[in-house]
Amino acid sequence: MMVGAETIQSALRPAGPEAARLTDLWWIFFWTCASFYAALMAFFVAAWIRGRQNVEPDVTPATERSHTTAVTAALIVSAIGLLALLVTSVAAGRAVGKFATNSNQLEIEVTGHQWWWEVKYPNPAAPNQQVVTANEMHIPINTHVLLRLDTRDDIHSLWIPNLHGKRDLIPGRVNKIFIQADRPGVYRGQCAELCGLQHAHMALVVVAEEPEKFAEWKKRESLGAPTPQTPEQVRGQQVFLGAPCANCHNITGIDASATLGPDLTHVRSRPTLAAGMLLNTRGNLAGWISNAPAIKPGAQMPPNQLAAGELQDLLAYLDTLR
């Protein structure tokens, strides 16, 4: 919804091998359970109709034997059904686990915050060029991506249904999950563990794209913020550095390196603001800066009492961060 019709959050529309395996498992469970349920209801209706017909109970030994046989057969069929589901489930779990051994990996660190996602692309060779973004993740298609999951505060759970199942983010430890997208698209993810007031508003988008486009995006994101060109933009940068903004946010290339809030180096290139709540438009950004708690109660971003001119200058500067 936020970034176009392609953004669909559905476990039944898999876009990667792990999700496809889980979707197959879901359908197997669905049809097996639906079949058993339909059979059970059919027997129930038959018994009900028979009861209404006041048929005298047949208690001859032959009938008793046939009843015993029927119950035994039902028991065996139920046991086989449950066993089949168990085997299918274990097999799916093992198959998903094997995906983790694939090579061709890209590593991404995802950190959960109340209530937004921090996404880092570590670059051990050049740490100052690591890419840090928020509430969006770009991945190349047909590439196995290792997500290292950590949290800064509460327990969260990352769930990108089109790409994989859920994985918890536990304070004090790093969990791993592998995802892979087989086709380009924008897939919505969501926190799946109650994490406080704005748990429902903790979304992220995963943009799966051709490797070349991903490389372009990553190269662009690894650059620092551009130098402001117009007087308005220069004043906006001064507003940013003088106002409380710089106390919480990082913008690579200027004297703002706090990590409490999302990295803003390329904030205007992202599709959404406030972890999926708002489209990333100038108007929404102005509203968010002015009074974030009114839009997202409980958010740590405080209201900012900026003069109208200061706000416009700040927006002009932030517009350059693409």
């Binding site: 505060d153 563990e193 109650l194």
Partner: peptide, 17 residues
Amino acid sequence: PDAGWFSYVPLSGPTFD
């Protein structure tokens, strides 16, 4: 109460609730 039916920790702790 607002921290889930089994009072999820650490969400129910003094830091977050």
